[in-house]
């Protein structure tokens, strides 16, 4: 059964590679990228499977047990476009193509001078013989870094202007997860690349790590009454927990002046760093007026991208004026 699934998966993957990807790569003299392209095809196939699960399981759940009932779903349409671009690999591929050459140059330069970047296995050699545990450790370290990236994107006004695109959705659904400014995606890619370089995450793990993160994020934005149980909600970020992060009104208190519940996978970071907020009710989502540079409340993809850049520019300009 397992072998049959694996065989079927790689048969389709190989067919796509042979038919659609390899011929143009060879014709363009890019044969070295075939192995990378094979991984790219895998990302695409996992994206298709994820979309199928979302359509066949999660979307019906939103219909059967909705948290909020909306008159129409027009505002959600743009999020679907973001999701397609993200899950089918278009945005990840573009971000990778932009970032990878820079890091290869940097690492190549360091290594030529004898510096070998550290690896988490240098501290914990036992992980060399326990790849599953090593994978989990990478996930925890990565999630710790993601917590801080996320928190900082709410703290700096120029960054918040970009990230606000994600928060401007008042009809939060399973598709909202991928709604991000493209520059915010690039910054996220850079952040991940630095962490991967610092702890030695092998490129072969990228897809697995991405799948776990995307699955949890998909579920944490869902517009459905879905609970992981009392214990589960403490261990992993769920829809109720994350809804407070998207709340239209921030919880009271100085600790929450930039927001709350920043964790992506594990709530433990919010608990450790004082940004945990737990409440029983489910608040409305969105951004309060006049809290973001620019006006990130338009529905169109390109309009949102433009608003984000303009907001970032305004925030940087205001900061410069304040300094002078």
């Amino acid at each position: 059964m397992i072998q049959q699934f694996l065989d079927a998966f790689v048969t389709v993957q190989g067919w796509l590679l042979d038919t659609l990807v390899q011929p143009p790569l060879l014709a363009l003299g890019l044969g070295s990228y075939i192995e990378l392209a094979f991984d790219g095809v895998e990302i695409f196939m996992w994206g298709v499977l994820q979309l199928l699960v979302a359509l066949l399981v999660l979307r019906p759940l939103e219909t059967l047990r909705p948290l909020e009932r909306w008159r129409d779903r027009k505002a959600v349409r743009v999020d679907l476009l973001y999701t397609l671009l993200d899950r089918l690999g278009v945005i990840p591929l573009a971000v990778f193509a932009l970032i990878a050459p820079i890091f290869v140059e940097l690492e190549g330069w360091l290594r030529f001078r004898g510096f070998i970047p550290p690896q988490i296995e240098d501290l914990l050699p036992a992980l060399e013989r326990a790849p599953l545990i090593a994978f989990f450790v990478y996930l925890v370290v990565l999630d710790f870094a993601e917590y801080w990236r996320h928190r900082l994107s709410h703290t700096f006004r120029w960054w918040w202007a970009l990230h606000a695109i994600h928060h401007s959705q008042r009809q939060m659904s399973l598709w909202t997860d991928s709604r991000n400014h493209l520059l915010d995606d690039v910054i996220g890619g850079l952040w991940f690349a630095v962490v991967a370089l610092l702890i030695g995450i092998p490129p072969g793990h990228f897809i697995g790590l991405m799948l776990v993160v995307k699955l949890v994020e998909n579920l944490s934005h869902i517009n459905a009454r879905l609970s992981y149980g009392r214990v589960g909600e403490q261990l992993i970020v769920g829809p109720h927990y994350h809804r407070w992060h998207h709340s239209l009104a921030l919880p009271p208190g100085p600790a929450f002046r930039h927001g709350c519940n920043f964790a992506v996978l594990f709530p433990v970071w919010d608990w450790l760093f004082g940004t945990l907020y737990l409440a029983r009710d489910n608040p409305p989502t969105g951004i309060a007026p006049n809290t973001v540079p620019g006006t990130p409340d338009h529905d169109g993809f390109w309009r949102q991208q433009w608003d984000g850049l303009r907001g970032m520019w305004e925030a940087l300009h205001a900061a410069r004026k304040q300094r002078s």
Binding site: I2, Q3, L6, F9, V10, Q13, F38, D39, E42, W46, P131, L132, F135, G204, H205, I207, G208, L209, L211, V212
Partner: peptide
């Protein structure tokens, strides 16, 4: 190629 996590789990079982 499957995700590393899934791969290891399935292969540990198979082997």
């Amino acid at each position: 190629m499957l995700s590393t996590f899934t791969r290891h789990a399935l292969q540990t079982l198979c082997s």
